[in-house]
Design a protein around this nucleic acid. Structure first.
Lengths: 117, 117
DNA sequence: TTGATAGTTAAGCATATACTTAACTATTGT
DNA sequence: ACAATAGTTAAGTATATGCTTAACTATCAA
């Protein structure tokens, strides 16, 4: 898609699609951390970690502030929440449909409804 | 990451990161559809739609079967469910932490706990 | 003031993604 | 048998992504 302004969910799911970034989010879900703390378990340069962090911040999943020379990062749960809601709504919609279908089948199938009405 | 086998969540979130594919999932959450039906509201070639469908199938979000010349696609809710769970677990973890923190603050702040014990 | 720490930024590179066109293959209705 | 329908597949292209190295900028500590 040309000239497309990415929607919030584009950025959120894109950010979560990378295993390194999911690890960073997992770490941050335990509590705030500095950039170096985020980088510590990761097998890549600090530079790469900073770039991943930029993606997370652009998506709104993470917020950070610098005090002195250390930048402290923390999770921003709202975007996490809307991603979760998008998924659960589709899933709910699909499952409601299956329920209606199931009810219809039970109601019309003579083997599950031999008598009644 | 070189030589990295993409994890199921990588594929799921990657698939959901594209607005066209989310539209397809939304359509499918209302019930099964053929490839042409999926393509109908989309401003791109059938070819492109087939390729998006391949991404959705590779992620396990969608399953399809061909009968005669029409391929019918439907949602596979399991992967949707695990993506949802991943998110809600991180969010829960973050929120539990905030709760503990809040409780701690209330318990130690003399203005909210002027007497007692 | 000098050095170590913590992070930033730009450039370059390999690979992946989101398309298009075009040529092709089955299936079905007439 | 013939054309229309439904989808598939390959090739090409532009842009995006996930890194690296390297050069740089603040802050803190001795």
């Amino acid at each position: 898609m040309l000239n497309y302004q990415p929607a919030p969910l584009d950025l959120a799911f894109q950010a979560l699609a990378d295993p390194t970034r999911r690890l960073m989010v997992e770490r941050l879900s335990q509590g705030p951390a500095s950039v170096s703390e985020l980088a510590q378990p990761l097998d890549m340069t600090l530079s790469a970690v900073v770039q991943h962090l930029a993606v997370l911040e652009a998506s709104g999943l993470v917020r950070s502030q610098k005090v002195g020379r250390v930048r402290t990062c923390r999770i921003e749960p709202q975007v996490l929440h809307s991603a979760e809601r998008w998924i659960s709504e589709r899933r709910a919609s699909w499952e409601r449909r299956l329920d209606r279908l199931g009810a219809f089948l039970v109601e019309t199938d003579p083997t599950t409804r031999p008598r009644s009405k």
